[in-house]
Structures are given as structure tokens and as C-alpha cells.
């Protein structure tokens, strides 16, 4: 199948190096300590953060750092066919783990010993790249909750189809079965905290594709920073400063 036509346009009209439209909103769950809504094209996820708070299950308490927990789920209505998905299936367990590890790497857990931070992410609408969108949403929610972070971790995927590296695959491109690299990145520290890939890719091509994904992460980080700044200004304004 032709994913990039000879004119250099993808199926949805983007060029290979372009991301989908992104949009973010802070504070969409009032009850949570921090929350955010994040959209990448038609992918829409919501994240809520509770904590730092007392550890619910005492046996899990860690004496020198905070316990980070993460729960990922997909709403039944998030895909076209409305199916009841069992909770805790393999895919969600894996993504929960991935998100938890990525976030744990940027939270300064040593500042909050014997406490617990809960991150809940839910996919409201799925159109490829849910993993990346969840990480971006979680970052925003953590920042909103005021949890100390080393850096804003952002994520973006990139793939390789029709001999072209493509940034930010949507569902159709994702289902092509080609290589799909998801990167989690700390833009200020210039460090990678997550790197996953489906399918196979030769090493030199892989570097190109990964570099493209990192560029995507940087773009997301700029946007998130803007949103946070905007949000802080709003808060300032409300306080009457």
C-alpha cells in the first residue's frame, strides 16, 4: 500500500516530517491534584494525578523514595467498534508499566519518601500513538499537581514506511505493520527515558527514525512548556498578582 504518495503527502495530507495537530488543556479533573487532557490529532487522552499522599498499602511503602503507581485504561468507546475490554489485559498492563517507568525516571522521588503518587491515564479516543499521548498527558498532570520533576518528559513516535521515515504515525499507518519507534525524551537534559520499537529496522535507518522521533519530542516539549506558562499566568492572574 502507498502510505506516502510521490507528491510527498501522507494519507491524511501531512508531509513525512509533520506531526498531527496537538492540543492540551490543564485541570480537566477538578478532584485530582493535577490533571490534563492531551490530544494528538484524533487521539485524545486524559490524565489525573493524585499525590504525593500517604501510602495506601503499608507493605509497599519505600523508606527513601516515593512510590509511583500508574494505571492505563482505554474507554470502551475509544475505538470505532464499541467492545468491552477486560481490565488488566496484557496490553494495558504493559503500557501501564511503560508509563510508570518513564514517569518514575523524571519524578524526584527521593524528595518524597514514604509517600505515594498515583497516575491514572485513560484513552478517550484512539487513533494511533496512544502511548505517546498518555506520557505527554501524564507529564502535564504531574506538573499541574506540582510534583517536583527533573525535566518535562515528552514522547512521540516515528515509523518507517515506503522507505520514508514518518513522524507521529496515526492508526492507519500504525496498522501497516512497519517499524514503529516510540521515544520518551527529557529535552533539557537531552536524555532518552523510553525507547521501544515494533518490527525490525536496520541500524543506520533506525538512527534516522529515532532522531526524527526525538525532534518530535522536542516539538511536543515546546508546546507543553507554552501551555504550562499560559496556565501559570492564568493562576497568577486569578490570585490577583
Amino acid at each position: 500500500m502507498e502510505y506516502v504518495n510521490p507528491e510527498g503527502l501522507r494519507l491524511d495530507g501531512r508531509r513525512p516530517m509533520e506531526m498531527r495537530q496537538i492540543r492540551a488543556e490543564i485541570g480537566s479533573v477538578a478532584k485530582a491534584d493535577g490533571s490534563a487532557l492531551f490530544e494528538m490529532g484524533n487521539t485524545k487522552v486524559i490524565a489525573a494525578v493524585y499525590g504525593p499522599r500517604e501510602v495506601q498499602n503499608r507493605s509497599q511503602q519505600i523508606s527513601d523514595k516515593a512510590l509511583v503507581r500508574c494505571e492505563y485504561s482505554m474507554a470502551n468507546f475509544s475505538t470505532g467498534d464499541r467492545m468491552r475490554k477486560p481490565k488488566g489485559d496484557r496490553r494495558s498492563t504493559e503500557i501501564s508499566l511503560v508509563i510508570r517507568q518513564t514517569m518514575e525516571a523524571c519524578i524526584m522521588t527521593h524528595l518524597m519518601p514514604r509517600s505515594q503518587i498515583d497516575i491514572f491515564v485513560q484513552v478517550l479516543q484512539a487513533d494511533g500513538g496512544t502511548r505517546s499521548a498518555c506520557i505527554n498527558a501524564a507529564t502535564l498532570a504531574l506538573a499541574d499537581a506540582g510534583i517536583p520533576l527533573r525535566d518535562l518528559v515528552t514522547s512521540c513516535s516515528a515509523g518507517y514506511l515506503n522507505s520514508t521515515p514518518l513522524l507521529d504515525l496515526n492508526y492507519v499507518e500504525d496498522s501497516a505493520g512497519g517499524p514503529d519507534v516510540t521515544v520518551g525524551f527529557l529535552p533539557k537534559l537531552d536524555k532518552v527515558t523510553l525507547l521501544q520499537m515494533d518490527s525490525k529496522l536496520s541500524i543506520d535507518l533506525f538512527e534516522n527514525v529515532m532522531q526524527l522521533a526525538i525532534e518530535g519530542c522536542k516539538a511536543v516539549a515546546n508546546y507543553i512548556r507554552e501551555i504550562l506558562l499560559e496556565n501559570t499566568k492564568q493562576l497568577e492572574y486569578r490570585r490577583g498578582l
Binding site: 494519507l11 491524511d12 495530507g13 501531512r14 498531527r20 490529532g41 484524533n42 470505532g80 467498534d81 492507519v172
Partner: peptide, 13 residues
């Protein structure tokens, strides 16, 4: 055989 609604993004340039 099933009818379901597909939503695709379509970017205009």
C-alpha cells in the same frame, strides 16, 4: 459486512 464509522483526519494545506 459490519457498518462502522471511521474517522480519519484530513489536513488541508
Amino acid at each position: 459486512g459490519k457498518v462502522n464509522k471511521q474517522v480519519r483526519e484530513h489536513y488541508l494545506r
